[in-house]
Design a protein around this nucleic acid. Structure first.
Lengths: 203, 203
DNA sequence: TTTATTGTGATACGCTTGTATCATAACGGG
DNA sequence: CCCGTTATGATACAAGCGTATCACAATAAA
């Protein structure tokens, strides 16, 4: 087999260009030609690696998922050990809010995809339910762990509290995204809600 | 002046068609021709009443705002008097979640517009911050009123609690929208959070 | 060195889009 | 009655879109 160029590397480069264009012009307005120009390759190449526009869209979503997962994994790895349940939760909150530009872009695109998926059955809706569900499970188990270690009140319904925290996270996330309020305010309000679950009530 | 046809009525009819198309095909994919067909008028007519596509978009957003306001006004009017702060809040929650199809459509379009506005400076971002801010003020005053009437705990920071409730409302709203959870589950979880603020603690 | 396969460019096609143009029908005021 | 404004239809146009086609450069295997 000839002319072996690293397929995955090329795909990644094009996908990064895709993300940049999508952020700049809006996901709905992404054109294959614009992606090609942004990536510095020919239109044909984009076609070659992703076949069709729907293919690029699909790959874009998967790319975002992978990127988000690795971001979170790195964040957890940087956590000082041993990490309390509360500290881990807090890191999760900070990570889940669009604090820096990268995170902002990610949130915007994710939301764009969620909207897009509502009137396009090419891409599966499950990405937008499975992700939050997993996250909620994760939060619930962290809460449970916190209850066991005495950080949180013993009478918590961890499932419901996790659902509430997830809801808040999403709501505040979009609020920060549309610049209704700055990220640090959102974090403060989250801290208050988390404080309610603690054994040592602050307010 | 001749051939006087009710301008506003026509505009409204076209806007309703616009909304239907936007819900069906996605806001990003709305074409003037599709709106014309849906409204049963000629393309030229849509141009005549809205000049340009951006004009139609703008008008569409304003239409949604008006529709939402009147929906909420009617809801309040139907409230049994005298309405307790808690009952009013609860009505607000029920109204704010995408429970029926109309509300679902509204939420979807509103979210689409929010995403759209992030990469289009034709439509003002203020609609997406002013609305929630007003709502938050409203909730805060309801909470304050509830504190005064003894429904809610006296030591509440009503501003922060209002912010938290708004955040939850938005988060749960999108969760229901993407069918991550059904509306009644979201309402139950909201009830729990509201119970925390009450004088007579339930759980 | 040939050969088959993989990777890349140039370009064209058909379609849809928003917008513009032009004619003309309808109708109130003079 | 007629005139000028308002309202509506038919149609044209240039631009941009996704997709398809074809040629050909590059290279690993024979």
């Amino acid at each position: 087999m000839p002319r072996t160029v690293d397929h995955e590397e090329r795909r990644a480069a094009i996908l990064e260009a895709f993300v940049r264009v999508a952020v700049r012009e809006g996901l709905y307005a992404v054109a294959l030609r614009a992606v090609a120009v942004e990536a510095g390759v020919s239109l044909r190449l984009v076609q070659y690696y992703f076949e069709t526009k729907a293919g690029l869209m699909r790959a874009g979503l998967e790319f975002l998922e992978r990127q988000s997962n690795s971001r979170w994994a790195q964040r957890v790895a940087e956590l000082p050990r041993p990490a309390t349940a509360r500290a881990t939760l807090w890191a999760l909150f900070e990570e889940a809010l669009p604090t820096d530009k990268d995170s902002r872009d990610f949130h915007l695109l994710w939301m764009s995809y969620a909207v897009f998926a509502q009137s396009d059955d090419q891409i599966s809706h499950r990405a937008f339910t499975d992700g939050p569900n997993r996250l909620q499970q994760h939060i619930a188990s962290l809460l449970q762990q916190g209850v066991a270690s005495g950080e949180f009140r013993a009478d918590l319904d961890v499932e419901v509290e996790a659902a509430i925290l997830i809801g808040l996270l999403h709501g505040f996330g979009t609020a920060v995204l549309v610049e209704q309020k700055p990220a640090d305010v959102a974090l403060n309000q989250l801290r208050l809600q988390l404080g309610r679950l603690s054994c040592t009530r602050v307010a």
